[in-house]
Design a binder for these strands. Structure first.
Lengths: 127, 127
DNA sequence: TCAACTGTTATAGTGTTATTATAACAGTTA
DNA sequence: TAACTGTTATAATAACACTATAACAGTTGA
């Protein structure tokens, strides 16, 4: 899977990386159990520092989305897309509430929110 | 409207403030045209610095959600909840895509996403 | 066994951001 | 004039983001 970063973005580099990997998994570009590039390899490929990649991987590991093995490397979790972490429930609620509130402040009512969600799920290909 | 901040939160103080104000508007606690506390008054009330409040207000002004008048003070935009800023469309798409992707990685499929959205809109009271 | 690869840890430097603290400025209003 | 608005400027501290080296420990293949 192709990963890109924009050094001029306001979003931090490691956040760009982790978001792209999450999107790749959701989209099916990355399959459960699939290997990810090594921290050194990806850093070299992207022209950034090893630790920046390591931090992105560390956050994904913290969320249970990838599995890191000290000697074997990094891969997508086998149970991702299936198992739900209960601790994530509150985080998800808070993020969606913020999106709904901000959307309402910008003229997105419930119908428009739902239509946009439907459209984006179609694009991603989620059932 | 009651505003609170948690200095131990990972979220920045000004981000907490702006999110709560957006939620207050969405929820109807704050009405279009309604006055907001002065930067000094709110800072004093919350026990934080004037500039931190000022930054929260500045970001909300940037998003067109509040109106700042150098001498009259701060108030909620009159057209908030109605008018849509076209520039916000891309931001909204990106944020929702990220939420969908992250949700999918944590076991939230489309049905669960939609159900949660319905539930939260009911709680907020959006039509 | 040796070399090459994994992620991890440590240390250090630089630049940016978040927050606080004062102070002054300019416009409005009673 | 006095008291209130937001704004701007300056400075200090702390935390964060990113980079640069270097070393460590486990695994794997030649």
């Amino acid at each position: 899977m192709l990963l890109r970063i924009d050094v001029n973005s306001e979003e931090t580099l490691y956040s760009q990386l982790s978001n792209q990997i999450k999107y790749g998994i959701a989209r099916g570009y990355l399959m459960p159990g699939e290997d990810l590039p090594s921290v050194r390899g990806l850093a070299s490929e992207l022209g950034i520092n090893m630790h920046t990649v390591s931090k992105a991987y560390a956050t994904l590991k913290e969320e249970g989305i990838i599995i890191i093995n000290r000697s074997k490397g990094v891969k997508v979790s086998d149970e991702v897309l299936i198992s739900r972490d209960d601790d994530y429930g509150k985080i998800f609620d808070k993020k969606m509430t913020e999106l709904i509130a901000e959307g309402l402040c910008n003229g997105y009512d419930k119908d428009q929110f739902m239509n946009k969600a439907n459209q984006l799920f179609d694009e991603i290909g989620g059932k």
